[in-house]
């Protein structure tokens, strides 16, 4: 399984040149059943990565471009009157898919953003008092522009906390950009990893069964406790997320045990957006926490 995943990562990095680390993190996020937030400037390949992730596992995906006039019903769907049966019939919206690609999520109004909350946390949608179950797996891969871009409204902290990871791609290096310009990259449509949704589920199961020792849990607890000395402490959900993501990372590395190194590898991706509340800092807050807590366990 790990080999297949490795080859998938290899292929993905052919699509998105020079971003292997981010791709690994994104895959780890998927394996940990977490939602992914991609934040960067326009044109950095956020949407490409999101779509590539969905295609990688052959998942059924919908892409919704969030705009300021997008309403919750546009996502969840509405009940319409069926002229034949004279009854209201629920018409599922684009949210009913395995991967929801929410483009530029911070352009939508807070009302629409919060419509995602229930779906992300519980995997179901309530419309007109009826609860509708979403397909399994259900993953939101959202992309957003930096907050300094015009016409954006920041995601509330409750929403941010539901994203397991926040990644930013950053500018590619010169070599990778040169390769891209000379069209040496794999087109998205040509991506064929041979992985299926069932493979993803199997991998998710193995990840959740990874053993975590008491020493490791103590390390996570210490990190979380240190973060809470400052204004935005990490929530228990974040602590759970740290452990899940670290398990996924260890699984990707083909290791049976999760060590503090794995925690450190995913820490900034999992913790930073919860620590800075969506406002990027010049000095990463997660880094200073890692430096305060004893890494020897």
């Amino acid at each position: 399984m790990t080999e297949q995943l490795q080859s998938a990562i290899h292929q993905l990095s052919q699509v998105l040149l020079g971003k292997e680390h981010q791709i690994r993190l994104a895959i780890a996020c998927l394996l940990a059943k977490g939602h992914l937030l991609l934040e960067d400037l326009p044109g950095m390949g956020k949407t490409t990565l999101a779509e590539a992730m969905a295609r990688c596992f052959g998942l059924h995906f919908h892409r919704v471009h969030f705009t300021s006039d997008l309403l919750p019903a546009d996502l969840t769907g509405v009940a319409v009157l069926d002229s034949v049966s004279s009854q209201f019939q629920f018409q599922p919206g684009p949210m009913f898919c395995e991967v929801l690609l929410a483009d530029e999520i911070n352009r939508a109004s807070p009302r629409t953003q919060s419509a995602l909350l229930e779906a992300m946390a519980n995997g179901r949608v309530s419309v007109d008092g009826c609860s509708h179950k979403l397909p399994h797996p259900f993953i939101v891969i959202a992309s957003q522009n930096g907050l300094d871009q015009t016409g954006t409204s920041p995601l509330p902290e409750s929403q941010l906390d539901r994203f397991l990871m926040r990644l930013s791609l950053g500018f590619p290096d010169r070599q990778a950009e040169a390769a891209m310009l000379s069209e040496q990259h794999l087109p998205l449509e040509a991506l064929n990893t041979g992985l299926s949704a069932a493979d993803l589920e199997a991998a998710q199961l193995s990840v959740s069964q990874q053993h975590t020792s008491t020493a490791l849990i103590n390390y996570v607890l210490d990190l979380v406790a240190t973060s809470r000395l400052n204004a935005n402490g990490l929530s228990p959900r974040a602590a759970k997320g740290l452990l899940k993501a670290a398990k996924a990372w260890a699984f990707l590395e083909g290791q049976s045990s999760v060590t503090p190194d794995h925690i450190q590898a995913i820490f900034s991706a999992v913790a930073e957006h919860r620590l800075d509340g969506g406002h990027r800092q010049n000095q990463p807050l997660s880094k200073s926490i890692l430096e305060q807590v004893d890494g020897f366990r």
């Binding site: 060590t259 807590v293 890494g295 020897f296």
Partner: peptide, 23 residues
């Protein structure tokens, strides 16, 4: 472990806080 790392400390190689054992 602490005991085992004493010879390295003699060569001025000491762990920094936050550093994991592997690092």
């Amino acid at each position: 472990l602490k005991d085992c790392l004493i010879p390295l400390a003699k060569l001025q190689i000491r762990p920094a806080t936050g550093e994991t054992l592997q690092q």
